[in-house]
């Protein structure tokens, strides 16, 4: 028994000694080791922000979301804030859901059909180049500029006023580049022979595109849509000038009754507020938002994977 222990120990020791001699003997081994160590450090730096963010948000907002006290837990999500903001954030949650649903209803069909047009129908390279270029530039425009544009064009020029419609249309602008480009990539990955197989049966171009090409591209399409939804759920800047804010839920599509709160806007407003008790609510809302984005990701992944297994 002790003999065995001795031998394991000496074996380990042997390896260690061999390793040290190697390092000593060879500068190449040392360089190799340093490079490995540097990469490890980089990986730690890369993953640290995620954990730090989760830690920061959870350390202040955890009990707001998972606590069982008054105004905590599920109650936090289901009650309206009231005049002194002492209640929950139901207004923001309903608002974000409404904004995202409306934005998706406008943005997803537009960008998917746009991608279908430039990938399947457009013959000239010019149209394709223009659409690709503009959507790439649009993706790079800072969100606050998009917000300013939404205010000037939608709220002011088109006279929609601030509210749920102007806000969601502004978010729809933000969705277009992501969904368009990912849909395009997905369509491009569908082999030509699949389209030909359908056309050779006497199918029209439209039937081929809708029933075969889009179906084959569906998993990629879902990924793009989910990325875009996850992104706009957390956007604050485009909503500052376009959605307004509200302690309740919108009752109209345009006009003063259409003002709507959103989770990111609420987080921003609460953190900027000097009242101490709003800090926990802000971080609780942040935690809630992160969980919502996570849920969207998981659900969309499940759908995508299920469809992939069933179809491809």
């Amino acid at each position: 028994m002790s003999d065995e222990g001795q031998s394991i120990f000496s074996n380990r020791f042997l390896f260690l000694r061999e390793w040290i001699t190697n390092v000593k003997q060879s500068r190449r081994h040392l360089a190799d080791f340093l490079f490995k160590a540097a990469l490890t450090a980089i990986v730690v730096i890369i993953i640290a922000p995620f954990f730090l963010i989760v830690f920061q948000v959870a350390s202040i907002g955890f009990w707001q979301v998972f606590g069982t006290g008054r105004g905590q837990g599920i109650e936090f999500f289901l009650t309206f804030p009231g005049v002194g903001l002492e209640g929950g954030i139901r207004n923001a949650i309903v608002g974000t859901v409404e904004l995202v649903v409306l934005a998706s209803a406008v943005g997803i069909p537009l960008s998917v059909l746009g991608a279908v047009y430039i990938n399947e129908y457009a013959r000239s390279g010019l149209v394709r180049n223009i659409v690709e270029f503009t959507s790439d530039v649009l993706a790079g425009i800072p969100s606050i500029v998009i917000g300013a544009f939404g205010f000037t064009f939608l709220a002011s020029f088109l006279n929609l006023g601030m509210g749920v419609l102007a806000g969601s249309l502004t978010l729809a602008f933000m969705m277009i580049p992501t969904v368009l480009r990912t849909t395009q990539e997905a369509l491009r990955a569908v082999p030509m022979s699949l389209r030909e197989g359908s056309l050779a049966l006497g199918a029209t171009k439209w039937s081929t595109t809708w029933n075969v090409t889009m179906r084959a591209a569906f998993p990629g399409l879902v990924t793009g849509v989910l990325l875009a939804i996850g992104r706009i759920m957390g956007e604050t800047a485009p909503l500052i000038f376009t959605a307004g804010n509200s302690l309740s839920v919108p009752t109209e599509l345009v006009g003063s009754g259409s003002w709507v709160a959103s989770i990111p806007y609420t987080i921003w407003a609460y953190i900027s507020d000097p009242r101490e008790y709003l800090q926990a609510k802000a971080h609780g809302a942040a935690l809630g938002l992160m969980l919502m984005v996570l849920a969207v990701t998981v659900v969309a992944n499940l759908i995508s994977r299920k469809v992939t297994r069933r179809l491809v």
Binding site: G197, S198, N211, V312
Partner: peptide, 27 residues
């Protein structure tokens, strides 16, 4: 479309549609 209905084609690489066996035939 009528012509391609009357002249069927099989390709070099199998290209089943991303659907069930049944739906492939019913397409």
């Amino acid at each position: 479309y009528e012509l391609r209905k009357r002249i069927g084609m099989v390709f070099q690489k199998p290209n089943p549609f991303p659907m069930s066996v049944r739906d492939n035939i019913m397409y």
